[in-house]
Design a protein around this nucleic acid. Structure first.
Lengths: 332, 332
DNA sequence: TTGTATGCGTTATCAA
DNA sequence: TTGATAACGCATACAA
């Protein structure tokens, strides 16, 4: 900038004013400065600017597993919205490790991000929550609820309703023993999906058979192991809900291994409409939601507080939609 | 930091030395400073540190489409490696738009990233290349080749070899008319896959029928449209190579619509072993590569130059592997 | 409308 | 081993 000023024969501050298009700059000044900038190929230093302004125009994004297509979509939606608003995204991966959540939040605090979007690996871990409280910037939680975190907005998907409808669909088809494989209850989707599952049972006055409920993981490996267990029960379920797109992968592996055919021999429901669900033969019934939109909404909730410091944290809910396909059939 | 110094009753510079564990600090000094830091909950300002040091410990990552599971995996591998080495990743999405490539590179330049990992939307666009040349930091290209960019390392997948073997497999099964749907030639994977396809043809002394070659896109929509065209030819191909995981989604939609069954009526090969390929019925033959590893290697190539400024740019090649499954069957 | 000067929070140089 | 101080590149209060 100093060089630009020298070249243009003006003061440093004038260059700054031109760059930030300050109202009080003459056309002559602007022209001189712009010319000098061009000649020198000058690019402003956003690091210095951030230090001076006290704002980095940067948002931290902590995600449990970017390789999960779900999070990839959310990331996409959020990055697009943030980028358009002039913010850059600093991406970190907690790899599903609650302790890393805390570390990553601390790192982002040191980097002085203006805001944080986070999908916690574990909502209940107090060290992480304490760390989040120390952060003095707006926070948006993705599909998570942390009771005493007043500074956080959130985007929540209505898993419970979707799962209730899916379970009721199975009841309507005559199924009475329904297996559920899902994520752990330490995270909102796990709790909500279970809640919907239970709600359907009680509305139909059927007791939940806890031997058929396997909560605790997200991975294909967990899905496969749990599906294997359920299939080997003395009285196996006639329908299975594999509540997660990676769990579905594992579940299908187990079903193939056991040579149980979907639809005719066992009904199957999953969550999130990935290509595998749509194109599998038979196509798989899913509880879907708009994940890209969730990312956009998360970014929007953050931006509204970044642009207006008076704005209060807010919770937005995204609906789920039951897409019925041939994997759910009448019980035999 | 000033407060910490005051609280500990020492000079500012001493606090800095403790924080950067400089060799010449007494144990007493360290203890006092650490105590003050704890009491105040002080967290260093990495923005100021970056300005002063002239290094942000930050790497820019420009990807064409983070929602593509392929890039999501690459991102995962790269972020993990960078994070372990103390670098943060600034993620930007070009959305497949060559002009955005340039914009994003410029933005990252202003953010003073220490290095750049990029998967260009278009290798040939000169404005983008000019922008990359202005960047004075190490660059790593992901599956891209830019002739006159001396400052860039690269990770390349051996698509040509994989595609050659896939095509030869189809010839061995008796197919003579093989359709190819693939990405545009403005990007290395498109060129290489076509090269492998042609190599197989010439090794088997079969001429390429250009009516069967449809290059130009990555999306499901493109895959579906091209598959539709190929199926409606007066003399349609007996085998199809859908060279991309999203193209596969579109191709399968077209096949379903046309009620053509994979394996028995048409042989099918795709690229990258996504769950859909593994679990489809019949399972789909693919040309696979380790995408997470590609991300890790990209980060590694960057780190070796970040840690040793003398290090020269380097090209690493990742092998492809043909996974033969039931979607490829003898021609009828 | 433009120029001068100060400080943002660090690190590094130099002197003590 | 420690302390005082300059400088990193910019934005802004204030003076002209």
């Amino acid at each position: 900038m100093k060089e630009v000023a020298r070249r243009a024969g003006v003061a440093l501050s004038s260059v700054s004013r031109v760059l930030n298009d300050h109202p009080d700059v003459s056309d002559a000044m602007r022209a001189k400065v712009i010319a000098a900038i061009k000649e020198l190929g000058y690019q402003p230093n956003l690091v210095a600017s951030s230090l001076r302004r006290g704002s980095t125009k940067t948002v931290g994004f902590v995600v449990a597993d970017i390789s999960n297509p779900l999070f990839a979509d959310i990331t996409w939606g959020a990055e697009r919205r943030l980028n358009r608003a002039g913010y850059s995204m600093v991406l970190t991966n907690s790899e599903g490790d609650p302790a890393r959540d805390e570390k990553m939040v601390r790192l982002l605090r040191r980097r002085r991000v203006d805001g944080l979007i986070i999908s916690l690996a574990d909502e209940t871990r107090k060290e992480t929550i304490a760390e989040l409280k120390h952060l003095e910037v707006p926070i948006v939680l993705i599909d998570r609820e942390v009771g005493d975190l007043a500074s956080a907005s959130a985007v929540l998907a209505d898993h419970a309703e979707g799962m209730r409808r899916a379970t009721e669909l199975l009841f309507d088809l005559g199924h009475r023993r329904i297996g559920l494989i899902g994520p752990s209850e330490s995270t909102r989707p796990g709790r909500e999906r279970l809640a919907g599952f239970k709600a359907a049972h009680s509305s139909r006055r059927v007791g939940v058979d806890w031997d058929l409920v396997k909560l605790g993981g997200l991975s294909p490996a967990f899905g496969e192991a749990m599906a294997h267990e359920l299939l080997n029960l003395k009285d196996p379920p006639s329908a299975l809900i594999s509540a997660g797109n990676l769990l579905l992968v594992g579940t299908l592996r187990a079903l193939h291994r056991a040579r149980v055919s979907v639809g005719s021999e066992i009904s199957l429901v999953s969550c999130d409409d990935v290509p595998l669900a749509e194109l599998y033969n038979p196509p798989i019934t899913v509880v879907d939601r708009n994940t890209v939109e969730m990312g956009e909404i998360a970014a929007g909730l953050l931006l509204e507080r970044l642009e207006d410091p008076e704005a209060k944290p807010r919770v937005a809910t995204v609906p789920t939609r039951l897409i019925v396909r041939a994997s759910t059939a009448a019980a035999r």
